Amino acid sequence: MTKTRVLTGITTTGTPHLGNYVGAIRPAIEASRDPQVESYYFLADFHSLIKCHEPDRIAESRREIASTWLALGLDTDNAVFYRQSDIPEIPELTWLLTCVAAKGLMNRAHAYKASVQENLDAGNKDTDAGINMGLYSYPILMAADILMFNAKKVPVGRDQTQHIEMARDIGQRFNHIFGEEFFVMPEAVVDERVSVLAGLDGRKMSKSYNNTIPLFEPEKKFKKLINKIKTNSLEPGEPKETEDCTLFQIYSAFSTDSDVAKMRERYAAGIGWGEMKGELFELLNEQLKGPREEYQRLLADPAYVEGVLQKGAEKARALATPTLDRLRAAVGLGRFI
């Protein structure tokens, strides 16, 4: 049986929060248990350097993210779990792809165009002010991440589909120039069912809005954050709408269908916001208590986490090394004998 190879990268610039868990981590861990799927999950730490020049923050984020995925039950016997920076073949392939990628293609990248527009809106005569080459060319690094392992499926948010299209363009260009099907063309997988959680202020939960609820905060602080979630002024006993309610949305993401239906009835009956926040805290705390303890244990044992990542890198390089040897030979950089 041929397995479908799926690849997902996690940028290492922040602390995992409830939105990350529901939108990416939980479905990825569930998918990794599918016997028909070959999962590659990596810490995209090269990507983090594009916008973050704080070494301590990146180092801490790498530890937190690796420990989070392991604490939540990622089976590293089935999934290949590694750091991008532990695979030296990745930056080398990035250069090979850079030498065939069209500059015009990079000009059309959404992130680059958005940064140029910000300069225009600010009246800056230099439309490239503050834009480094990492931001400009990172779609090529992303293409290398994907094409190195010939991943067939790449789960992404809808705003990331352009990067998969670019990876296809660059891979096809390389195949055409060097006359062989070196790369499988990846397909973006956008799951519209995946929840996008709202944060403390009702906007999308995001570290850029400073409205997140970190996944493994200590219990007391976690409860305080739940209590800070924005609500309206309706009193206990007054019927409440579930639509656009952050509390109900988060509750639904962690509950069974039957419990969600019961909670919907309690909203109609006028559940108080304080009571609802208490219910939500108890629900989340019960589900996260065990993983939180394991997370703290893993943070205190960096040698173990390092060992897991090194084993993952060995698995990844077992594929990447011969692939790059073949690509080197294709472009004329092979060994003499």
Rank of each mutant, 00 (worst) to 15 (best):
Q296N: 14
S67V: 05
Q172E: 15
F248M: 10
K152M: 06
R266D: 11
G179T: 09
T323N: 11
V308G: 04
F281H: 08
L215N: 03
L299S: 08
H163T: 03
G157E: 10
E219K: 14
V305R: 10
L120Q: 13
G202Y: 04
T4W: 03
T242R: 08
Q287V: 04
K125S: 12
S32E: 11
S137W: 02
G290T: 15
Y136A: 00
L215H: 03
T98Q: 09
A329D: 15
A66E: 15
L200T: 12
I10Q: 04
M148Y: 00
G171T: 08
G278V: 12
R33E: 15
R168G: 07
H163D: 09
P186K: 08
E265R: 13
W273K: 03
D244H: 07
T242I: 09
P291Y: 02
S195M: 14
L327E: 12
I226H: 12
Y251H: 12
I10L: 13
K228W: 01
E54W: 00
A313E: 06
P302L: 11
R108Y: 01
T76E: 15
C99I: 10
I50D: 06
M166C: 05
A303N: 14
M142Q: 15
C245I: 11
V6E: 14
Q296C: 04
F182Y: 15
G272Q: 08
R326L: 08
A114K: 14
P55L: 04
E238K: 08
A320N: 04
D201C: 03
F46G: 05
